[in-house]
Each structure stands twice: as C-alpha cells, then as structure tokens.
C-alpha cells in the first residue's frame, strides 16, 4: 500500500534519528572513547559534576553523561532531556537513547517501570542513590572515580 515514504524531514520529522512528528529528538553524542565506561544520570540542573541527581528519570530536565576510564573522568556532557516532552513513553525514549549511546551504568533515584524494563534488556547496571545526591559524590561513593 505504501508507494513512497517521502521522509525528507520536511517539517514532520526532525532529521536523522528524529522523532515522528513535532517531538524533538534526543541529542546525538559520540560513542564513549575506547577503554572507558559510560555512566548516565538524570539531573535537575546543569552544573557539571555538582549537578544534583533528579528524583525523576524519564522526565528529568537534564541528563548527565560521564565517561570514566581507570578511575578518572574523561568526559562530562550534560544535555537537555528531550524525552521529558514525550506525550507518553518518556522513560522508554530515554531508555532507548541510553542504549544507543553505549552507556553501561545508570545512577538514579528511582526508575519508572518502562525504563527499568528497557535497561534490563541489555543488562545496564543500575545504581540507586538517595534524592539530592550530587553527581560527583555519587561517582566517588560508587567507586567509579578515585
């Protein structure tokens, strides 16, 4: 029944990997450098390693992506969480992105049922921390950073 697709992103899908319709896609970020592990944490505002880990995950305002190698921080990237604006399935959209960017660890306060299921599929390690924990402190406490 479909003769042509016509998906050139003309107003109804925002470019490569764009979400259908008017939803903004999650940002593209390069894969983790070799030899490093990638850690993701939802945060309430963007303040580098001083960002507080958010009580929300799927609809957290920002997502912190930290690449760690040999106990040292290699990269810190804090992006706006486009998934927060998903009408439904925000946790799934975020979970998909976490898989796509090659993260192997998630630090959060709690996980909604959907994102929990998605992360389990690839065995992403989940570490739960008390609300208000600062990102840098969590990384140290969990032993990712010396």
């Amino acid at each position: 029944m479909v003769t042509s697709m016509g998906w050139s992103g003309r107003g109804y899908s925002r470019g490569r990997g764009g979400m259908w319709g008017y939803q903004a896609p999650m940002p593209q970020i390069p894969p983790p450098p070799s030899g490093s592990i990638r850690i993701v944490a939802p945060v309430d505002f963007s303040n580098g390693l001083n960002s507080p880990i958010s009580m929300r995950t799927g609809r957290a305002p920002y997502i912190a992506v930290v690449d760690v190698s040999g106990g040292k921080i290699v990269n810190v990237n804090i992006v706006q969480n486009a998934a927060a604006m998903a009408p439904r399935g925000a946790g799934v959209q975020l979970g998909q992105w976490i898989l796509n960017i090659g993260a192997s660890i998630v630090i959060a306060v709690s996980l909604g049922p959907n994102i929990d299921m998605v992360l389990r599929q690839v065995g992403v390690r989940v570490e739960l921390v008390p609300p208000g924990t600062i990102l840098g402190d969590a990384l140290a406490k969990l032993g990712f950073v010396k």
Partner: peptide
C-alpha cells in the same frame, strides 16, 4: 522505533526489537 508515536518499540542494539 522512529515512527512509533508513543515509544512502544525499542531497538536493543544488535539484538532485537522490544
């Protein structure tokens, strides 16, 4: 996955569609 408006499909890299 791209065209599901409610994110009911997930691509598990190199494995399957959930």
């Amino acid at each position: 996955v791209e065209y599901c408006p409610v994110h009911a499909l997930v691509l598990i890299p190199s494995k399957k569609i959930l």
